[in-house]
Amino acid sequence: MKRIFSGIFKGKKELSLGFYGPPNGGKTTLANKICKDWTGEGLGKTSKIPHETRTVQFKEKVDIEYKGKKLSLKIVDTPGIATKIDYEDFMRFKMNKKDAQKRAKEATQGIIDAIKWLDDMQAVIVVLDATKNPYSQVNITIIGNLVARKIPVLVVGNKIDLKKADLKRVEAAFPEYEVVGISGKYGKNMEEFYESIFRLAKKA
């Protein structure tokens, strides 16, 4: 049934586009940038404290256009996937114990939900922090699951505005995938990014 609907949507150029990745990679910042560019409104709150997004949040009918081509996106921003959650890590950001424990509890549920939502995606953007080591198991697990589900992937190396960013390392880690370097915060290289979304949509 999903495939039939997907086929109909394909004709209408509609796409459920998931944003996946480890915490603090900039998924919500990028989703906000896209939503603001095309609808004038953002999607979610961002923070330096990891696991700010703890529920799956989405925005429908985000109509984007590039060189005369049109695409209607359902942007699905997911909580960052991690293999461990320690409430004491949140307390380092001056959060009290009770709030930190609440955040940890919500974050664990958010990760479970993010994994469950994988089946509903038609294409996924894996958002990685280009200043960090891309060879983390979480990144590999996410991409492995997308491949197993035959969901097309675009890898985004975010935060290229930072000196430590190393896009070549991200490209070397995922040679089978298209990798685009951007800065979601400053809107750097968004033209190339939008062009890549249209290429990704063709594969969905």
Binding site: I81, T83, K84, I85, Q101, A104, K105, T108, Q109, I111, I112, I115, K116, L118, Q137, V138, T141, G144, N145, V147, A148
Partner: peptide, 18 residues
């Protein structure tokens, strides 16, 4: 593990935290 098993391992791990 298969990728789906890795994802399930993460899910089950998260269900146990706390």
């Amino acid at each position: 593990l298969h990728p789906e098993e890795e994802a399930r391992l993460i899910e089950d791990t998260m269900a146990m935290v706390g």
